[in-house]
């Protein structure tokens, strides 16, 4: 495993984008980064720049206005990249399923690797999802090596 892959696994940087959530999941993502849950002990840092990020955390359903922004952010991230859909809205549209401006889950716009249902999700679930995503990243790195 190369140095870059190793550092990605030991310290993945996450980018957070709010697609149209009610803020409940967003504040839980922030709560997961703060002392009680402390996601940083896994080396995870919240970063604002998509070009430096490895994991994209998306909250809320995709809508007709912001699907372009989401796609842009996804395209700007370097490979290998992972997408985690945080919250029921991001998975399926949830409580907003019949709202006129909503397209549904974010998997209509970008490919999603880990789904985290819950309204709002608990910080423990977010930690679990990131660990699952890291396992997938390790698998990706391994298969790349074999090739």
């Amino acid at each position: 495993m190369g140095l870059i892959q190793k550092s990605q696994l030991k310290s993945p940087w996450v980018l957070h984008f709010d697609c149209g959530s009610c803020n409940g999941c967003d504040i839980e993502i922030l709560a997961a980064l703060t002392p009680k849950f402390d996601l940083e002990r896994f080396g995870i840092v919240n970063i604002g720049d998509p070009k430096q990020a490895d994991v994209l955390l998306v909250t809320g359903p995709a809508n007709k206005r912001n699907h372009r922004v989401l796609k842009n952010l996804y395209n700007q991230m370097p490979q290998p990249k992972l997408v985690i859909a945080v919250g029921t809205c991001a998975c399926t549209g949830g409580v907003f399923h019949n709202c006129p401006n909503v397209l549904g889950g974010v998997d209509n716009v970008v490919p999603v690797d880990v789904y985290v249902p819950g309204c709002a999700v608990r910080p423990e679930q977010i930690i679990d999802a990131v660990v699952l995503a890291l396992n997938k990243l390790a698998g990706l790195a391994q298969s790349e090596e074999e090739e």
Binding site: D18, C19, G20, S21, G60, P61, N63, R65, N66, V69, F96, N98, C99, P100, N101, V102
Partner: peptide, 13 residues
């Protein structure tokens, strides 16, 4: 408008 969902319409429905 980036997080507009149309809740007022959904309330009517």
């Amino acid at each position: 408008g980036y997080v507009h969902r149309g809740i007022e319409r959904a309330i009517e429905l």
